[in-house]
């Protein structure tokens, strides 16, 4: 039996202390979407190097002979995977599978995961950050744009939730 999750206020305070530590030591907050973008750019570069280097936005990741993966957010993402692995292993929660509502099919769930991921990827680049970098890290510094992003994010998710109810409930 997996162990129960921790109290959300305790987990939130723990997360907040990690964010505080990040600001104290790194001088910057948390982030996750930046590493995914960089991994995608590197994968695309493997397939079509010239096209990536000639694209003004994608090519900037390779400017001056840089390695897009030698970047602190990539290391942070690897750490996030390791920390998640440690915690889920210790709690007996490692369970390979496709998580979905009781009446949702695996195929539908995986298609929606891909579509949802693509939307989140586009949205994060418009906003220059995701729930970690923009909502949480910017919110702790009381940034106007962070509150705008968070409000818009939850408004859209609540508005669309009835349409995908079967996927979850």
């Amino acid at each position: 039996m997996p162990r129960p999750y921790w109290n959300p206020y305790v987990a939130g305070a723990g997360l907040g202390l990690v964010l505080l530590f990040s600001y104290l030591v790194l001088g910057t907050g948390l982030g996750a979407s930046g590493a995914i973008t960089r991994a995608a750019v590197v994968a695309a570069h493997g397939l079509a190097p010239a096209a990536v280097e000639q694209n003004p936005w994608l090519g900037s990741y390779y400017a001056d002979g840089q390695n897009p993966l030698a970047y602190y957010l990539v290391a942070m993402f690897v750490g996030t995977l390791l920390g998640g692995l440690l915690s889920s292993f210790a709690a007996g929660r490692i369970a390979p599978g496709v998580e979905r509502g009781p009446t949702a099919g695996i195929g539908l769930r995986l298609c929606l995961a891909l579509v949802g991921g693509a939307l989140a990827g586009i949205g994060a680049r418009f906003a220059s950050g995701c729930t970690s970098g923009m909502a949480l890290s910017g919110g702790a510094l009381l940034q106007t744009g962070s509150f705008v992003f968070t409000g818009a994010c939850f408004a859209a998710a609540f508005a669309l939730a009835p349409m995908v109810r079967k996927e979850w409930r």
């Binding site: 948390l30 996750a32 979407s33 590493a35 995914i36 993402f77 996030t80 995977l81 390791l82 920390g83 998640g84 692995l85 915690s87 889920s88 929660r93 490692i94 369970a95 390979p96 599978g97 998580e99 929606l112 995961a113 891909l114 579509v115 949802g116 991921g117 693509a118 939307l119 989140a120 990827g121 586009i122 949205g123 994060a124 680049r125 418009f126 906003a127 220059s128 995701c130 729930t131 970690s132 705008v148 992003f149 968070t150 409000g151 818009a152 994010c153 939850f154 408004a155 859209a156 998710a157 609540f158 669309l160 939730a161 995908v164 996927e167 979850w168």
Partner: peptide, 26 residues
């Protein structure tokens, strides 16, 4: 970006950081 991201969150079920942790749980 927030509106598009929020749509992705409820349709996909994750955000980038939590998806890393979900992947780590299998």
């Amino acid at each position: 970006g927030g509106l598009v991201f929020g749509a992705g969150f409820v349709v996909g079920g994750w955000c980038p950081g939590t998806a890393a942790v979900g992947l780590a749980s299998g």
